[in-house]
Nucleic acid binder design. Structure first.
Lengths: 206, 206
DNA sequence: GTCTATAGTCGGATAGAC
DNA sequence: GTCTATCCGACTATAGAC
């Protein structure tokens, strides 16, 4: 990795990665060309090939960077999860922040694009493992004081929750004004509340 | 609509729509060009523009066609749903059939592509309403004999289930060999079973 | 490391013959 | 309705000056 100077200016690689993410978010995968990225970031198109070799390699690196950043950010929050309600609340907050940052939108765009390229698909899945693990951890915390813990396979549930989150993001972006994500999170919050109240009555402590 | 001849040969519009869906499934959105569609279907590229005006218009029409077909097909099954377990089983079957047909993969590809085009996004969302309604109906059937019915808002739950399904499809396509969809459906089946056994004990009949 | 310029390819779309 | 031929713009990627 290149040394970071003590200036406020990010180095070129970082600027390129950030412009790539921004383009992916605003223009979608199909609109994320070397020219579009360079125009958005205000640098020369040829720099992308000098620094990353190809647009595809840049996008993979950009996904790695944003995944690491986001997972680190939410892992702290996940460690504090003590109930299903907490878990829903984190998900809600992540969604809300994504309306601005588009970090998850970037994931759905890259996943859809990688669906027809086995190598890219495998690479994406490897990197997405961090997200699933994040949810698994949060889920373990959420179930710690719940008799349901013995009955819910955390891996599968984490996978399913990630899937739902991606799907909500995909649908919400189609027409943000008609997004029903808020109501969905409210519903899940109510369900979590219900599960916490009712389950102890019917399940014995393990 | 053009009259259907009494031959086994589908008319040209149909052939084009089918080639477009096949291309979308095999090559992804980025690879779905007029030339690729024509090559796959064995017809002339110019026919796409003669019959549909543009590639984008063709894809929208293709989505309409496949959605209507799939929703009609599964609406019959949805009407028979009498429990949460039935609902999970339908979802599992749809997923299994999608491994072959790719009908849902097409939806995720078109949704991701439409994310950066507000007009296309709204059109996609309108047409996706049929899928949400399908799940809503199945859910009503699943909850009919369950005290949970009074507590679960069917619209939100239907939306969430659709989202999860799309997400599972998106993730599964990245590397079909590493797909965890089967385990996820098994987990949901167990949860449905559990809900059916336990909830009546703790919720009064409404 | 960053720039300009350009080669080479592929895409949407149309004109016009049949 | 279907074909051939083609225009033209946009793309990735590279060569080479600075």
């Amino acid at each position: 990795m290149t040394e970071r100077k003590k200036t406020n200016e990010p180095d070129t690689r970082t600027r390129i990665v950030e412009a790539a993410l921004e383009t992916l978010r605003e223009e979608g995968f199909a609109g994320t060309t070397a020219r579009a990225i360079a125009a958005r970031g205000g640098f020369n198109q040829a720099l992308i090939f000098y620094h990353f070799g190809s647009v595809a390699a840049l996008l993979l690196e950009a996904f790695r960077a944003t995944s690491e950043e986001q997972v680190a950010k939410y892992n702290a929050a996940a460690a504090e999860v003590g109930s299903l309600s907490d878990l829903v609340e984190i998900a809600r907050r992540l969604h809300e922040e994504d309306l601005e940052s588009g970090a998850v939108t970037v994931v759905t765009q890259l996943m859809a694009a990688a669906a027809s390229d086995p190598d890219a698909g495998r690479a994406m899945l490897d990197r997405f493992e961090g997200w699933i693990g994040l949810v698994e951890n949060a889920l373990r915390g959420a179930l710690a004081s719940n008799p349901l813990a013995a009955l819910v396979p955390v891996r599968e549930a984490g996978y399913a929750i990630c899937a739902m989150f991606l799907g909500i993001e995909l649908m919400s972006r189609l027409d943000p004004e008609r997004s029903e994500a808020d109501q969905v999170f409210a519903m899940m919050s109510a369900m979590a509340q219900l599960a916490q109240e009712l389950l102890p009555k019917v399940l014995p402590e393990s």
